[in-house]
Amino acid sequence: MTSLAATIGTGNIAGVAIAIFLGGPGAVFRMWMTARVGMATKYDEAVLAVRFRVTDQNGKQVGGPIYCIQNGLGKMEMVGKRFVLFASIVGFGIGNMVQANSIANALNANFSIPEWVTSVVFLVLFSVVLLGGIDRISTITGKLVPLMVVSYIGAATIVCCSTLLQSQTLLT
C-alpha cells in the first residue's frame, strides 16, 4: 500500500495535465512509452525487494533499495551512500513539491485558503505520519489508498462522461 500510495496521487493528475498542455497531443504518446519503461522498472524493483529482503530483530520482513544494494551488490558502501543522498534530494522535488503545490493552488483558487495555511496543515499531518515510522505509514496508506483509487477512477469517469456529453452537444 505504501508503494501504491506513492504511485497514485495528485502528481499524476497535475503532471499529465501540464504535459498535455505544454507538449500537445504528442505528449500522450511519450507518456505511454515512458509508462512502459516505468512499469518494467516498478516490476524489477518489486522482484529485487522481495529477493533481497531480510528479517529484522523483531521478526518483520524488511526490504527495499538499500537492502538490494547491500545484499545484491555486496560491499559497495559508496553506492548506498550516494543512493541515500540522491533519494533525499529527489524526494522533495519530484513528487512532493508538485503535489503540495497543486493542492495548495486548488484550495486557494476554489476556497480562498491561503497557500501558507495549506502548507502548515500538510507539514503537521505529514510529520505525524512520517515520525510514526513505517508501521504508521503503512496503516495510514492502507486506509487511504482504496479511497484514492475509487476517487481517481470516479473523477476520471466523470471527466470522460462530461467530455462525451460536450462532444455530443457540439455535434448536434
Rank of each mutant, 00 (worst) to 15 (best):
I103H: 04
F126V: 15
N108I: 01
G133H: 05
V117F: 10
S127Q: 12
N105P: 03
L130E: 10
L123P: 08
F122A: 10
T118G: 04
A104D: 03
G133L: 09
S119D: 11
S112L: 03
L107D: 04
V124Y: 07
V124D: 07
A106W: 04
F126P: 05
G133P: 00
I137A: 03
F122M: 14
V98Y: 06
N108Q: 06
T139Q: 13
I103T: 12
N110G: 03
P114G: 06
S112Y: 02
G133T: 07
A104E: 04
S119P: 01
D135G: 12
V128S: 11
G133D: 02
S127W: 14
N110V: 05
S119M: 09
L130I: 13
A104Y: 00
L125S: 14
S138D: 14
G133N: 07
L107T: 08
E115T: 08
S119C: 09
V128T: 13
Q99S: 15
V98R: 02
T118Q: 03
N108L: 02
I137S: 02
V124T: 15
T118D: 05
L125R: 08
I134E: 11
A100F: 06
N110L: 07
A106E: 00
I137C: 02
V124K: 10
A100K: 05
F111S: 03
L123Y: 07
V120H: 04
Q99V: 14
A100M: 07
A100R: 03
F122V: 14
V98D: 00
